[in-house]
Nucleic acid binder design. Structure first.
Length: 177
DNA sequence: AACACGATTTCG
DNA sequence: GAAATCGTGTTT
C-alpha cells in the first residue's frame, strides 16, 4: 500500500462560494507539524458554512471589524476566534475579496467538536490570518478522498433570525459525527 | 470604563 | 440544567 502524497489545495479552491467550499472540504486533510516537527494529518469530517453580511449567524453580519477583517479578504486564509473565553474556533475563509465568508471546521476524524479539535492540534489565536495556500506551518491537502455526506442545520446559532438559523449549511461525512 | 454575550464543553 | 472564562463589540 503506497501512501498517497496529498496535493495542497490552491487559491482557486478557496475563492469559490462557501456553499461549495464547505462540502468540498469534507475528506480533505489538515496538515501541520507537532511540537517535535513531525508532520501530522487530520481528515475533515464535519463543516459549517457562514455566508456573508446578510447571514445573521455569520460574525461578518456585524460588519467589518478587527475580528471579522480576514473574512473580507480573498479565500484561503485562516479565521480563528475565542468563544466562551476558552475554545478556539478554526475557520477557513472562502470567496472573493469583499464577500465575507468562512467555513467552520466542526470535526476531524477522531476529534469531534470544534473546541476539542483546536485543543488537540494546538490551534489558537496565533494562526489568525495565516494563508493556507502559502504557509509552511499549516495547510490543507487533497489525497483524492471524496466522501458521501449529509446536511443539517447549523449548531449554536439560535440567536440568529430566520431564515438563517434554519439553513442546512452544516455538512457531515456519512456515518460519522 | 463598564457591560453583555457568545459558531462550546464538561460536570452534576 | 448550569458553570467556566475572556476577547470583542456596544454602550456609558
Amino acid at each position: 500500500m503506497d501512501a498517497i502524497t496529498p496535493t495542497r489545495l490552491g487559491r482557486g479552491f478557496y475563492t469559490r462560494d462557501v456553499l461549495e467550499v464547505a462540502p468540498d472540504l469534507l475528506g480533505k486533510l489538515v496538515i501541520l507539524a507537532d511540537s517535535e516537527g513531525k508532520e501530522l494529518r487530520y481528515r475533515i469530517t464535519e463543516t459549517e458554512a457562514y455566508r456573508g453580511e446578510e447571514d445573521r449567524a455569520c460574525h461578518a453580519s456585524k460588519g467589518r471589524t478587527s475580528r471579522t477583517e480576514i473574512m473580507f479578504h480573498a479565500g484561503g486564509s485562516i479565521y480563528v476566534y475565542l468563544i466562551y473565553g476558552m475554545y478556539w474556533m478554526f475557520n477557513v475563509v472562502s470567496s472573493e475579496a469583499g464577500i465575507p465568508q468562512a467555513v467552520l471546521i466542526r470535526a476531524l476524524e477522531g476529534y469531534p467538536g470544534p473546541g476539542k479539535l483546536s485543543r488537540a492540534l494546538g490551534i489558537d489565536g496565533s494562526l489568525y490570518g495565516i494563508d493556507l495556500v502559502s504557509s509552511d506551518r499549516i495547510w490543507i491537502g487533497d489525497d483524492g478522498n471524496i466522501p458521501a455526506y449529509i446536511t443539517a442545520p447549523r449548531i449554536g446559532i439560535e440567536y440568529a433570525a430566520s431564515p438563517w438559523k434554519e439553513k442546512d449549511w452544516r455538512y457531515l461525512v456519512k456515518n460519522e459525527g
